[in-house]
Structures are given as structure tokens and as C-alpha cells.
Simulated scan of single mutants.
Amino acid sequence: MTRTEAPTLIPGPLAAQEAGVAPATIRKWVQLGRLTPVGRAGRAQLFRLEDVFAAERTTRRSR
């Protein structure tokens, strides 16, 4: 039996840094429905890094 790793959750500002965009861009993607937070840590929204990269790819393709 293999152990599955839980996805690493990161806050919006770190997600923005990893994707090479401004934190406001992460917030905009959430407003537009391109990215969905999967949790919270206090007031901070948490995201899966793979979801952030998928939203970035989708945005890049639609330009």
C-alpha cells in the first residue's frame, strides 16, 4: 500500500510569487472563477500550487 501525500497548501501572496504574478492577480482569478481556494489559515486563503499553475496556464492561453 502506498502512502499518498496531501497537497501542499500555500497562501495567496506565496502563490502569486510562485506563479510570477501580483497578489492582486490571484485575487482576480478567484473573482473570475479561474482559481478556487481550498482552505483558510486565519484570514488568508490557501491554494494548491498545481491549481495556481493551471490558472496561470489557462490565463496565458486565453490572451
Rank of each mutant, 00 (worst) to 15 (best):
L14T: 15
T36Y: 04
P37R: 08
T36S: 11
P13F: 15
L35Y: 01
T36P: 01
Q17P: 04
A44K: 05
R48A: 11
I10M: 06
R34F: 02
Q45D: 15
R27L: 06
T25P: 01
A16Y: 04
Q31W: 14
P11F: 11
E50H: 10
Q45V: 08
G42D: 09
A19Q: 02
T36V: 05
R43W: 13
Q17V: 07
A24V: 10
L35D: 00
G20F: 00
Q17T: 12
F47H: 10
I10K: 03
A24K: 14
A22V: 05
L49I: 15
A22D: 10
P13T: 13
G33H: 08
R27M: 07
W29P: 02
A41N: 12
F47Y: 11
A16W: 10
V30N: 07
V38A: 10
A16T: 06
G42M: 07
L14G: 12
A15T: 15
V30D: 12
G33R: 12
L49T: 14
A15E: 13
G33P: 09
T36G: 03
A19N: 06
K28F: 08
Q31Y: 12
P13G: 13
A19H: 05
A44T: 06
A44L: 08
A41I: 04
E18H: 13
E50I: 03
A24N: 15
V30M: 06
A41G: 11
A41P: 04
A22H: 07
R48D: 13
L14R: 15
A16C: 09
L49D: 02
F47D: 11
I10C: 05
A22G: 01
F47T: 11
A16H: 05
R34L: 08
A44V: 10
I26W: 12
A41Y: 12
G39D: 07
L35F: 00
W29Q: 00
V21G: 01
K28Q: 12
L49Y: 09
E18L: 12
R40S: 06
Q17D: 10
L46I: 02
A22I: 03
V21W: 05
P13I: 13
E18R: 15
T25L: 00
R34I: 04
L46T: 02
R34M: 04
G20C: 00
Q17Y: 09
P23T: 11
R34Q: 03
R27S: 09
A22M: 07
L49R: 14
G20H: 00
G33V: 07
R27T: 12
L14S: 15
A44R: 11
F47C: 07
G20I: 02
L32Y: 01
T36L: 11
P23A: 11
A24G: 12
R43F: 09
L32H: 05
T36M: 07
L49W: 09
R40D: 05
R48H: 08
P13K: 13
K28E: 13
W29D: 01
L46D: 04
P37V: 02
E50A: 08
W29N: 02
G42S: 11
G20Y: 00
V38R: 15
G39M: 04
A41C: 11
I26R: 11
I10Y: 04
E18T: 10
L32E: 05
G42T: 09
G33C: 12
Q17C: 10
P11H: 14
L14M: 15
R43D: 08
K28N: 06
G42Q: 14
K28G: 02
L46F: 04
L32Q: 07
G42C: 08
P11A: 15
G39V: 04
I10R: 05
V30A: 06
I10T: 13
A15H: 10
